[in-house]
């Protein structure tokens, strides 16, 4: 099945890699994320758990890559390692050619979690302003940027509301606006739509595609949902559990992000890709070698 897909995908990736990736900081056009032989073991009282075992992954600048797999396959762990919220037991990671720690201190990436994680005592606007404020952006510039972002996610009218006055989907959109506040060239998202109902979810997905097309940022997106991964991604990384490994990388390439709309969901190519990911996930042919990164 791997052999049938790639022409289109390659073209797409090449195309997105060429688009201006926000404020791409590295002159050598380093990959947004490089993961080489990364292993992460957690030791607990009941013994040692291998969350990730010898994982390789490359995410090019401007590319949208989803991580999908059963619970416990280490996809969230991998994201946390990229974000320098955790450290690998072995192996190396780099973000735009730099160690994750340096990338974090340079504010190279924005991050969003399954919980919106808005500070409940701050208004929607000041929540979006939070990273800018912490990094010393002046009041006026902060305000202008927040206004711009809230318009982008369609919540300009709710700027002065408090988070608890918003629905879950709206809160998540605020969280995405916050993640985009510093124009990152990389967006890390850990099941950001996991808690939303299906209708809201599809709406926010389309919105994310639009935002991503506008910003040109690379995205690493952890999800449980196959259709979500297929709809959003340039490539879907299918992982297996115990130990967490990359089982297969499925190229998707349903066209440029800016052209993708809800119609894609009813397209034959969409269903074809969903089937491909599902087969990879459930190991229809148990012989597929792991870590096939088809670039």
């Amino acid at each position: 099945m791997n052999s049938s897909a790639p022409t289109r995908a390659t073209a797409t990736s090449a195309g997105t890699a060429g688009t201006p990736a926000g404020t791409a900081p590295d002159p050598h056009a380093a990959a947004a994320v490089e993961v080489r032989g990364v292993t992460r073991r957690f030791s607990s009282r009941s013994g040692e758990v291998v969350a990730l075992s010898d994982v390789d992954l490359t995410v090019r600048a401007g590319e949208f890559v989803s991580l999908i797999g059963p619970s416990g396959c280490g996809k969230s762990t991998l994201l946390r390692l990229i974000a320098d919220l955790d450290e690998p037991t072995a192996g190396e990671l780099s973000v735009f050619g730099r160690p994750p720690r340096v990338a974090r201190q340079n504010h190279d990436f924005g991050i969003a979690f399954q919980q919106a994680g808005l500070l409940p005592w701050r208004s929607v606007r000041t929540n979006v302003e939070l990273p800018l404020q912490l990094h010393g952006t002046g009041r006026g510039a902060r305000r202008a940027r927040a206004t711009e972002l809230l318009e982008m996610v369609g919540l300009a009218d709710f700027a002065e509301h408090l988070p608890h006055q918003l629905s879950g989907g709206m809160q998540q959109r605020v969280a995405i606006a916050r993640a985009l506040a510093e124009r990152p060239s990389l967006l890390l998202m850990d099941e950001p739509f996991g808690a939303l109902d299906e209708m809201t979810r599809e709406h926010v997905q389309t919105e994310l595609l639009r935002l991503r097309a506008e910003t040109g940022a690379a995205v690493v997106f952890v999800t449980h949902s196959i259709p979500e991964a297929v709809y959003l991604s340039d490539r879907v990384v299918v992982m297996s559990a115990r130990p967490g490994q990359v089982r297969e990388v499925v190229p998707v390439g349903l066209g440029e992000a800016r052209d993708r709309s809800d119609d894609v969901r009813e397209d034959d190519a969409f269903f074809d890709r969903v089937r491909a990911v599902r087969e990879a996930l459930h190991g229809a042919d148990g012989t597929t070698p792991r870590g096939v990164d088809r670039r």
Binding site: R104, Q115, L130, L134, H135
Partner: peptide
């Protein structure tokens, strides 16, 4: 919450600013 602490860490801010803002 852990998610808020993670967020502050991802912003690369130190203990004092985390203390004041969170």
């Amino acid at each position: 919450d852990a998610v808020h602490l993670d967020l502050m860490r991802s912003y690369g801010v130190g203990w004092w600013r985390t203390y004041r803002s969170l």
